[in-house]
Simulated assay, not measured.
Amino acid sequence: MTWQLAQRNPERLTIHFIPWLTWSFVGLVAYGVGTIVQSIVAGNQPLTSGTAIAVALLVGMAFFALITGGQLGICQIDYRRKLVTVTSYGLLGRRHQERQLTDVKGLEVRVLRRAQYRLLLALRSGERLPLAPFYLISFSDQGIRRIAEALNVEPELIPEKPGGRR
């Protein structure tokens, strides 16, 4: 699940895409690894190769989850500067893209499943700019409507086949 927190003022709309379910999973893994390591340090459990492999696999899964779906995404629509800025922060660094607001011709909603979708800005050049670095999961279309309203476009729903892009 992803929180879509929107802040609006007369000059700009800022949307934060926060992957709280991924971060919760990583927190749970950190708690489990901490419990195992604490038990080993206290001498209640011996360090075996099986325990070391299990801890390494858990840590690896947590890093994989953070790299693939744990990025914080920020989309900012600035009316004063007439810019759309999309920034993502993650373990692999920061990615920042800016486009002119006049270059935006539409908002594509690529629906993978009922509540899982990806938001892309359709630009006049034919390019598609993702607003978030991952698929979003939401049971409400309120965030989509708010973004489309801010861009003054109608969202276009496009069904996407699971397992591959069209």
Results as ranks from 00 to 15, higher is better:
residue 34 G to T: 13
residue 165 R to E: 14
residue 71 Q to D: 11
residue 52 A to V: 13
residue 37 V to P: 01
residue 37 V to S: 07
residue 2 T to D: 15
residue 20 W to S: 14
residue 19 P to M: 09
residue 109 V to M: 01
residue 93 G to T: 15
residue 113 R to K: 15
residue 7 Q to S: 13
residue 83 L to G: 00
residue 98 E to P: 04
residue 14 T to R: 04
residue 33 V to I: 15
residue 36 I to N: 08
residue 152 N to V: 13
residue 140 S to W: 10
residue 160 E to M: 12
residue 103 D to G: 07
residue 88 S to D: 13
residue 132 A to Y: 06
residue 163 G to R: 04
residue 130 P to L: 01
residue 51 T to K: 14
residue 47 L to D: 04
residue 72 L to K: 03
residue 41 V to G: 00
residue 144 I to K: 01
residue 41 V to T: 11
residue 150 A to V: 00
residue 36 I to G: 04
residue 17 F to R: 12
residue 6 A to G: 00
residue 166 R to W: 14
residue 165 R to P: 02
residue 49 S to M: 11
residue 159 P to D: 10
residue 90 G to H: 04
residue 17 F to V: 14
residue 136 L to A: 13
residue 104 V to T: 08
residue 132 A to N: 01
residue 92 L to G: 05
residue 161 K to I: 11
residue 125 S to L: 10
residue 39 S to K: 09
residue 4 Q to D: 00
residue 47 L to G: 02
residue 134 F to I: 00
residue 165 R to H: 08
residue 50 G to T: 10
residue 27 G to A: 06
residue 116 Q to L: 06
residue 157 L to Y: 01
residue 20 W to R: 11
residue 58 L to Y: 07
residue 121 L to H: 00
residue 25 F to R: 06
residue 161 K to H: 14
residue 64 F to W: 12
residue 22 T to L: 02
residue 54 A to P: 02
residue 78 D to T: 04
residue 160 E to V: 09
residue 86 V to S: 03
residue 75 C to V: 12
residue 25 F to D: 01
residue 103 D to T: 07
residue 35 T to K: 07
residue 55 V to N: 06
residue 50 G to L: 10
residue 87 T to F: 05
residue 96 H to Q: 13
